[in-house]
């Protein structure tokens, strides 16, 4: 009881927000293709830009895109930016070791995928322009998830990580005109 009598000097609370995300038609289609091992996007007729994952509209022109605009893109691409992460152990953190996350612009796409984990390369050699390829999870391990606007969770449920493909680095000018 002695402790019970001590003055209260600290407060510890959890602020939380609960929300529900509904699957969209384009998201369901994107996910189904990923499970088959294919990555699709929508190519805007107006701008010619290819959105991966498809959004159902073109960000630059606002015009709708539909199943008619569907294109398949490669599972090879180029690192356009990256972060080396030293995980801090906050509640909910699952990572314990240093790792690299990159944005990867897939061949045929105009928008880069975020949160792609890069492996099989020393940290100091990761660079913008590095050519990488997907390492897919075995088909039986691929899980349906809801596709959010940038598709990170859907991608990582089907693609384990990305590794250098051995192709020569991309010319920075070739990736400068795309959207990140």
């Amino acid at each position: 009881m002695a402790e019970q009598q001590a003055p209260v000097v600290m407060m510890e609370e959890i602020v939380s927000l609960e929300y529900t995300t509904l699957a969209t038609d384009v998201g369901i289609r994107f996910m189904d293709c990923l499970i088959e091992g294919r990555i699709i996007g929508h190519k805007s007729k107006q701008s010619g830009l290819v959105y991966v994952p498809p959004k159902g509209y073109c960000l630059m022109t606002g015009s709708p895109t539909t199943a008619d605009d569907e294109v398949e893109v490669s599972d090879h691409g180029v690192v356009t930016g990256f972060t080396i992460i030293e995980p801090i152990q906050y509640p909910g953190q699952e990572e314990t070791e240093r790792y690299v996350q990159a944005q990867v612009l897939l061949d045929g796409a105009s928008s880069a995928l975020g949160l792609c984990r890069i492996q099989d390369i020393p940290f100091e050699e990761v660079r913008a322009g590095l050519r990488v390829k997907a390492v897919w999870r075995p088909p039986e391990d691929r899980q349906q998830t809801i596709v959010d606007s940038w598709g990170g969770r859907a991608i990582s449920s089907c693609i384990q990580h990305w590794v250098p493909s051995g192709e020569p680095d991309a010319d920075p000018a070739s990736i400068a005109k795309n959207m990140y």
Partner: peptide, 18 residues
Amino acid sequence: DRPSENFTLALKYKRTLG
């Protein structure tokens, strides 16, 4: 029913009260 997922975004904080 359209598939959906539930998420919780939570932040734990601690402060001195004075």
